[in-house]
Nucleic acid binder design. Structure first.
Lengths: 212, 212, 212, 212
DNA sequence: AATGAATGAGCTTTCATTCAT
DNA sequence: AATGAATGAAAGCTCATTCAT
């Protein structure tokens, strides 16, 4: 009854995105050739351009698919938490855990889809904003719940995203820390401290910090 | 005695780097053609390949030139400060101020030289590390001077660099905040708070926070 | 009893030809894609290749359909005339009038189906010859009826077709003369003069030149 | 001292045009691939696009080169004639003679550069107009010199060009008449007759009709 | 030191045609 | 009869790099 099919059984649209993820992660956006993508996907150039109007549009679709899944995972994880601050901590943890499990997704989302000209960069800006927007809303809620003092949540959300981004990129490039998630507790503590939230304040009966 | 020459008087090596900075900032690394660079520089393809063995090596030289200048500016600014914590604050301020004044440098250094394949990315890793290394040494000094409590300075330095990176990238893409430096005081305060340093602790006679 | 159907009611074979006429008139033979033709026709690629073995054969069918209708119109118009010379004049008039009314037909027949390689050009030669053959037979009849002196009717028929062709092509490309048919009397007079037939010689009781 | 070089010695720009003439004559405009042209020319794709910005621009250059030479030949031949009517006759003769000698030029100029979409067709319109304009000016001069009665010289010049065009195209496709120039005297006579000029009126001492 | 014409592998994209349904 | 996803050869074009001058 499983919906998880063997690659050969999945439809061409998805097989192409799967292959593109792999190839772009290895070679980067520009150097990822349509030829290599269709070879890996077991389809053909004709099929590629039947399903996507251009390489660029196909990458947009790939990035959106990845973002959707990642956002869903984060929101799913945060949704089970009792307070805004717990939700922030859970979001950080979920993001780290997800990227740690999916190096290629991290590679493409954090490393390979920027720096390809002003126009392309601006196209991906909304995706950046989805993540920082999610953090910002949680920060706003924490302020409203008086868990933290009022502050520039737009700026802070960008800083958090940037801090997470950099730590993960270093891991991608150097393999350190190993595993990536070993850095999560310290990272989470520093981020919370930056908004004046003492990590102990998070403790609630039945939810230890490690579980976040 | 001025070192600032008219473009036509500067030597070919530098004119090529100047032109490359401009072109890469506009088009991105991959789309920046050697043809356009040599046209803007007033030299020729032959000259380009006489001075640099490849486009990639030339970009390395450009990035190194930019990094050297930026590091020098930061260290120069930090060197005048009395304590490690003052030096950290001054470093952040100098970095923000310098990128705010040189959009193209920010664009290339932060946006356009990553994501072009595993090999290329690893080549630029040392440059990333120069910046976080600088911050880390200042953090270590602050710990040693007991201005802040012991913490994982490697991780924190990466987080700081990432936070700065993201704020500046957003500014490059959206123009907000305007001017970029208007965000500096809040940014500096949040970063210091993340390591448990109260901004008031920085105040010293003759050096107001605004001057940092 | 009407034979004129709504496009959706006509059969697929004809709907494809109708669409092809439109698309080839706009884009030219080579640039007219099968995809666009089937989209406009409301059919499908499969249907296209069920009814026609190839794009080329389908264009042949289109050209033949158009030629048949045009020849029929010309012969119908000429058939009502009393003498060979009248029939020649009527043929010229009918041809001009028909193309004036059907720009797309003129475009495809005169402009878009030649110049696509030796083989293709030769395929369309018989269609060219249908028109000049029709003129030639009328010229031969005029010679036999002693309305004009003996001459190289093969050559003259080609020249007439070429002259008409060029005038119509110019009109297609420039819109001049406007309307096309405003040139018909002068054109007819010059053609007749070229074979030594004074236009006044055409006058017969009950048939004024204007009616031709 | 000859300027005529072996193909290998000529410069790349011209070698490309020479090869393009050959390939387009065989295959037609659309089917003539840049690959085949550069192979025949002994150059490379890079060289092709170094010298011409696109295939279309290169064909424009080819057509202009051919037109220039043809117009020069016609005007040179006509310039030696005593009267406008003689110049008209000489122009017709020169055009027929030139195309008879250069089948490929005829093929490309008369057969292969039209019918490739509205935009392209309009681009070549000025070239059509160079030839009919030349004829029209000679007809105007003949009217002014009272060698022929006033008439619509614009229309007549188009008709002449069309008549010549068609005769030559038929020869290209069928090989008839053989040689092409065997049709010249009759053709010339019919054209002159179409404007009311008796061929005998052309006779001048020392210039027989055959020499025209 | 410098020039710029030349190279050719590689790029993204198109398109007539096929075929399982 | 009809569908439309799939194919893959070929298209026009780009570009880092080379080299005779």
């Amino acid at each position: 009854m499983s919906k998880r099919l063997q690659p050969e059984e999945a439809n061409a649209r998805d097989r192409i995105l799967d292959a593109a993820l792999e190839v772009i992660a290895q070679r980067g956006y520009s150097a990822a050739g349509v030829q290599e993508i269709v070879e890996l996907s077991g389809t053909s150039k004709g099929s590629f351009y039947f399903h996507y109007p251009s390489k660029e549009e196909m990458v947009m679709a790939l990035v959106e698919r990845m973002s959707d899944k990642l956002i869903a995972k984060i929101e799913g994880s945060a949704g089970q938490q009792p307070t805004p601050l717990h939700r922030l901590a859970a979001s950080v943890d979920a993001l780290m855990a997800t990227f740690a499990r999916q190096r290629n997704v991290a590679r493409v989302l954090l490393l390979n889809i920027i720096g390809h000209g002003r126009a392309t960069d601006r196209k991906f800006l909304p995706i950046r904003e989805r993540f920082s927007g999610l953090i910002q809303r949680q920060l706003d809620a924490a302020v409203e719940a008086k868990q933290i003092r009022p502050l520039d949540t737009l700026l802070v959300s960008q800083m958090w995203v940037g801090a997470l981004h950099e730590v993960i990129v270093r891991w991608l490039l150097t393999g350190q820390p190993s595993p990536l998630t070993s850095a999560t507790p310290a990272l989470r503590a520093i981020l919370l401290k930056s908004v004046g939230a003492d990590p102990p304040a998070l403790e609630t009966p039945g939810v230890s910090a490690d579980q976040l």
